[in-house]
Structure formats: structure tokens, C-alpha cells
Simulated assay, not measured.
Amino acid sequence: MAMTAVARETVFALRRQIAKIEGTLPERLQASAGATSDADVNTGLTPNTNVTIVRRGVAATLPDAFLPTGVERLDAALSGGLPKAALSEIHGIETRDAGAVAGFALSLTSLILKQTQGLPVLWIGTTEIFREAGFPYARGLHASFGIEPEHLLFSEAPRLVDALWVAEEAAKMTALAAVILEIRGNPQRLDLTATRRLHARAQGAGRPVFLLRQAAEPEPTAAPVRLIVASAPAVPRETIAGPLAGSIGRPAFTITIGKSRTALPGQFTLEWNPDERVFDERRGDERWGEERAKNPVAVVSLSGSGKDPAAASGAILAFPAVGSPAVGNQPSQRQRATHLGPRRAG
């Protein structure tokens, strides 16, 4: 009987360890007062004792286990947000997406620093990475993300093996709020074993590790979450009188869930609010839809030989400009050619 209880406790311990590696948490159940549950009888525990039961596919969400993005639909698809004590991948399909990937990572860093005052974030990359994508601008960090320059540290490694070593050593440090590792492509050294080590270090320290990947293809890794990030068109700036034509609004990102604990796919367009430092979701380009509803006429009319040309937008009144010739004094055809010819200096 004693051996059976010991064996059962060993199985429970192994299941808890597997759940920790997979990024899930065991479900905690508390026996009701004055009653003895089946688990109490089977395990030989006394009533009114917290019993940890691990079920496959069941994960309990602790209040501080995830970093919510603030976008309800995205957080629901990620089962609460990005895991804090885990490795998370942020992909850019093409090299030109490096700016969007970095901007999204800095937005997450801003959210993290709100909760961990005073702790810095370490950004690790190779010389090739920083030569291709550059370093974040200090003034822009403060203006757009509220990040003080002393809170963002950089480590430039000459080789990928050196960058991975620095990342593994930094991932286990509780003196850092987060670790960012930026890698280009799909190097052979960054295999499943290397990502398992990073993920295990992040779990042990209780800190997030973000793996930024430039121009990389999805491949098996230990990260429970993979987000694919690209830049999205910015909408005009909002003013009291309405959208300001010709202006550039907030930075926007297209976020695609490539991998998550819930296995729920989804694509979202997020705008970063640099004033309040929060994400806002833009659904179906709502603002552009409002603008099209206000002015349904096409910006550029179709050609005369085209079908269904755009209708006139209303009455058009022409006023002669100051100093322009009168209607009856237009230049002749012979004069017009000279008038429209290229200017000659001197």
C-alpha cells in the first residue's frame, strides 16, 4: 500500500514536471470543507488539503502568469497573453519586416517595464544583425515607448555562438526584466536543443525571453508561442475635426498567430498608442471604411474609354486665379506650344 502511494506521488511529480516544460500549469483543486473526495481516498491524504491534479490539456491560469497585450481578442486566442516565464518567438518573414518586429518587441518591452520598475532589458544580437537593422534610437525609445535609455542594454556578439551563450546566461538572471535575442534566418546552431535551453532558463528565472527572427521560416522550437509580425498601413491622424488628410497616424502591426498553446489561428491589426502606451485593435480598417462612406466617389476617375466612370462629386465652380488671363484671351495653339515648352536657364 505504501509503495503504491509512493509510486502514485512519483507519477504526479513527473506529470507536474512535464506540464512545466510544456508551458502549462497543473490544475489545483481544493477539497470542500468536511468532505472527503475520491482523490483524498486514493492518495491517502486527509480532507481539506490542496490536491494538485494534472490533466492533459487542462491549464490553470494564474493572475501573473501571462503578459496581456490589452487586446481582448488576441489575449483570448493566446489563452491570456504571452507567457512571462517562457520563450516566445516573434518572426519577420522578410528582411524589410525587421523594423516592424523590433517595434512590436519594444511595445512589449514597454508593457513589461510598467510592471517591473527599475529592471533593465537586455537586447542581444550579432554584428550582422545590428549592421543590417541598426540600433533603436534613444530619443525615439522615450517618445514612442516610454523607455529610458538606461533601461535598454545591448550586447553585440561577433558570432552566433557567442550571442546564444550570452542569451542563455542572461535568461537565468532575475535582475533583468526580459531578454531579447535577435537572430537572422534559420541557422543550424539555433536548433530544438538550443531553444529548449533558453525556454528552461526562462522558466527557472520567471522572466520572458523574446526570440526575434529576421527573414526566418517556421521550424520546430521549444517556444510555446510564435507570432508573425509585419507592418500595417497607418491611417490618418485623428483630430477634433476628424481625420487629418495626408497625415501619418499611429504605427500599426499585422500580427498572425503561427503557434500557440490553444492552437487557435488568427490575424489581428494592432495600433500602438505612444501616448497611453497601449495596443488598440483595428478591425477591418474601420477608419478607412468610415472615410469611404463619407466620400464614396473614387479619388481618380476612370478613363473616358473605361466602363462605368465615376460619377461627378457635385457642382464644380471654376474661379480664375489672380493675374490669370481672361477666358477670351487664351493663347493660340501656336503660342501654347511655346508657352508649355521647357524652361531654359539664362
Rank of each mutant, 00 (worst) to 15 (best):
L141C: 06
R139A: 13
T126P: 06
L153G: 00
L152V: 01
L152P: 02
A133M: 11
I147R: 03
Y137V: 14
P149L: 05
A143W: 00
I129D: 09
H142A: 10
R131W: 04
E148G: 03
A143P: 00
Y137W: 10
E148A: 12
R139H: 10
Y137G: 02
F135C: 05
E128R: 14
A133G: 02
T127C: 03
F130H: 13
F154Q: 03
A133V: 15
P136T: 02
E132H: 10
F145D: 01
L152G: 03
E128T: 13
Y137E: 13
L153S: 02
A138S: 14
G134M: 08
S144A: 11
H151A: 14
Y137K: 09
L152N: 01
F130Q: 06
A138N: 09
A133F: 03
L153V: 06
L153T: 03
P136F: 04
G146T: 02
L153K: 07
T126W: 07
R131D: 15
E128P: 00
G140H: 07
R139M: 10
F135V: 11
L141Y: 06
P149C: 05
F130A: 08
E128A: 15
G140W: 01
H151N: 12
G125T: 09
T127E: 15
I147C: 06
H151Y: 03
F154N: 01
T126F: 08
E128G: 11
F130K: 05
A138L: 13
Y137L: 11
I147N: 04
Y137S: 12
F154E: 00
A138Y: 07
G125M: 07
F135L: 15
G140Y: 02
L152D: 01
I147F: 00
L141A: 06
L152F: 01
R131L: 12
F135K: 11
G125H: 09
E132V: 12
E150V: 07
L141K: 05
G140N: 09
H142E: 14
F154W: 01
I129F: 14
R131T: 15
A133S: 14
F154T: 04
L152Y: 01
H151Q: 14
H151C: 06
A138T: 14
R139C: 00
S144F: 11
Y137Q: 13
A143S: 12
L153Q: 08
G146E: 01
E128V: 11
F154C: 00
R131P: 01
G125A: 15
E128S: 14
R131G: 12
A143G: 02
P136G: 06
G134H: 08
F145C: 02
L152R: 02
F130L: 06
F130D: 05
F154M: 07
G134F: 06
I147Y: 00
E132D: 12
G140Q: 08
A138W: 05
G140A: 14
T126H: 05
H151L: 15
